[in-house]
Design a protein around this nucleic acid. Sequence first.
DNA 1: CTGAAAGCGCTAACAC
DNA 2: GTGTTAGCGCTTTCAG
Lengths: 354, 354
Amino acid sequence: MADDNGYNDTGAKSAHRPVVTIHDVARHAGVSSMTVSRVMTGKRHVSEAMRERVNAAIAELEYSPNITARSFSSAVRVGAIYSNPASSNLGSFLMGAFRQSGESGCQFLIEPGRNEKEALESLGRLVEARIGGVILPPPLCDSEAILEFAARSDVLPLAFATAIPREGVSAIIVDDYKGAYDMTRYLIGLGHRKIGFVQGDPKHSPSQRREQGYRAAMAGASLMIDDEWIAPGLFTYRSGLDAARRLLNAASRPTAIFASNDDMAAAVVAVAHGMELLIPRDISIAGFDDAQIAATIWPALTTIRQPISDMASRAVALLSDQVREARTGRQPEVRHVREMLTLVERDSTGALQV
Amino acid sequence: MADDNGYNDTGAKSAHRPVVTIHDVARHAGVSSMTVSRVMTGKRHVSEAMRERVNAAIAELEYSPNITARSFSSAVRVGAIYSNPASSNLGSFLMGAFRQSGESGCQFLIEPGRNEKEALESLGRLVEARIGGVILPPPLCDSEAILEFAARSDVLPLAFATAIPREGVSAIIVDDYKGAYDMTRYLIGLGHRKIGFVQGDPKHSPSQRREQGYRAAMAGASLMIDDEWIAPGLFTYRSGLDAARRLLNAASRPTAIFASNDDMAAAVVAVAHGMELLIPRDISIAGFDDAQIAATIWPALTTIRQPISDMASRAVALLSDQVREARTGRQPEVRHVREMLTLVERDSTGALQV
DNA sequence: CTGAAAGCGCTAACAC
DNA sequence: GTGTTAGCGCTTTCAG
C-alpha cells in the first residue's frame, strides 16, 4: 500500500554517510582513540602537536561525538517538578531543559507537582529513578518539606526562577524588582505621570518585589503615587477585572496601568474596551511575564519576558555539573545565577496624548 | 528495604543504594539478563511463569531500566518539529512525548519550525542527528517540501493532529467535525435555537470541518441558520473582536455563539462584556481547542479539548515501532490512529433563559 | 605524555 | 522458550 513514497526498499538501512566514531578519527590521525577523547574533553596531558593533528582529523571527518554514549557510562540524571502543567511556560521550559540535557549528556526527567503533596510524591518517584539533582520552580523551592526530602535523599536542589534565593541552595534568580522598575521607567519615559498599579497575590514572593520596583521607579522620578492608583489583585484574570474597574473609575484616572502579570493586564484591557477607551491612545496598559495571553489579545501587551528556555538550559547545565562534582566526593559549590528580564514592547502602550 | 547489603564503601561515590542493573534482576530471579530484557520490552517468547518470576524480582529490587543505555545500543531516534513554540499545547505535547520516549526506549528530539523554511532547516538538523522518524503537526504535515525531504532522507513521517490524513503517511487523526458537532448538540441541548458561529481561517483545513460539524448538528435538529449568525474569522483574537460585534449586533441576536477556536471565543466574551451582557445569562459562548486562554479568562470557556499529551505518547510509540520495523528491512504499515475529542464544560455556557 | 584494555547497561543476533 | 555472545561509542583505569 502507498508505496509511492518509496522508502528504503532493500534493507538499505540509513543509506547515509556512515557514523563517524572516535575510532575513525583516531585511525585517521594515526593515534589512539584515547588521545582523541582527551582532545575532545579538553584534558591536559596532550602535546600541542598531537592536539593539532587530532583536531585536523576531527575537522576533516566532521566528527561529532555521540553524547548518548558519552553520558552513558556516567549516567547523570536530573529531574524537575513542574507546578503548573497547563502553563505556557512549560513548553519553553521543557524545550530548553531537553536541549541542554543533550548537550550536558545527562538524562532529564519531569514530574508534575501542582501542590506540595503531589510534588512530594513526584520527588519520591524521581529519587527512585536515581536522580542526582532536581529543579524546583516556585513555590516548590520555598517548601521546607521538599528541600528536606531532597537533602535526605542526597539530591541536589536548584531553585528555579526565584526572586529570593536561599543560602545553601543554588538558584537561577530572576530580578522581579528590576523588571518592574524597568517597566515603570519605560512608562515614565513615554510621558506618563499618573501610573496605576495592579498588585499580585500577596502570598507569592514576586508580588512584593514587583511592587517595590514600581514604587522605586516612581520615587526615582519624583512622582507621587495616589492611593487610588493601587488596586489589589490575585494574579487571576478575574481579580484583574475588579482591579481594572476600580482604577479606571478613579477620580483622577491613571493614563497608564501596570499590572503585576499578563492575565490581569488582559483583564484591564477587556474592561477598558468595555468603557470604549482606545488603547493605547486613551490608556496604556502593561503586564508582566510574557505569558501566552500577552501576544494573543488585541492589542498585544507590552510586558516583561523571562527567558524561560535559556533559564532552563542553564539550570540543567548547572545541576548536571554539580551532580558530577558531587560524584567525585567533593561538595559542589552553591551558585546563584542571575537572569536578565527583558522588556517586550508591543501595542498596548504608547506615548501620553496631550 | 530490599537489600540492605553494605552500601559500597569502596569509593566515596554517591553513598546510595548501588545501582540495580538488569543483571542484578537476572541473578535475583535466576535467569539470564536477556529474559529480563524481553520481559521489560514486553516481547513475546517468554513463558508466563518466567515473566512472573522476573516481574517479582523487578519489583523486589525496585529495578528501573537505564534508558540512556537502552537507547544507546538500539538507538532509535524520533524527532518532532513544533510549529508554535509559544503554544500552551507544547508543554503537554512534550510531556507526553518524553514520557513515552522513556517507555518506548527511544530518544526524542525536538526542533522549532515556525514556518516552512525553519522547519526544513530543523528537519535537516534532525536528519543529521540520525532520526528514523519525525512527528509533524499541521501545517507541516501538509507541506510537500517537508514530506519529500523526509522521504529522501529515509525518515518516516507521522502527521500529528491532522483532520485530513494522507494516504501513505501515518497519522494521529483528530475529528474536528465531530468535535464541532458535539459542541453544537450540547448548545442545542441547553435549549438554544439561535446559535451563531465564528468561522476559522479558511486556509486551515480544520476550519471547514468544524463548520461542517456545526451545520450538520443544526440541520440534524431541524434548526435554520440565519446568514447573519455566521461571521468570518481568522483564528485570531482580533478577528474574533470583529466577528463578535457583527454577531451581537445582528437584528435577530443569537443566544449562543460557537467560535471555531478559543482565542476568538475569548474575544466574543470581551465584546459581550463591553455591551454589558452577562455570560452565560444573556449569552452563551463556546470555543474550541482548550487553549491556555480558555481557562484563564472569566468566565472560563466551555470548549473542546484535544488530549495532546496522550496523542503525543501515541505518536512516539507508533513512530518508534515503525522505525524498528523499518530497521529490519520491512516496510512499516501505514497507520491512522483516531483520537477522541472531549467537551469541557465550564462557565461560559448555560441553559437558555426564557 | 600516550596507549591498551576493560567495561558502562542494554539489546540484536544467533545458538541451544 | 531461553541462554550466549558481541558489541553500541565513549571514558576510566592502569601500563608503558
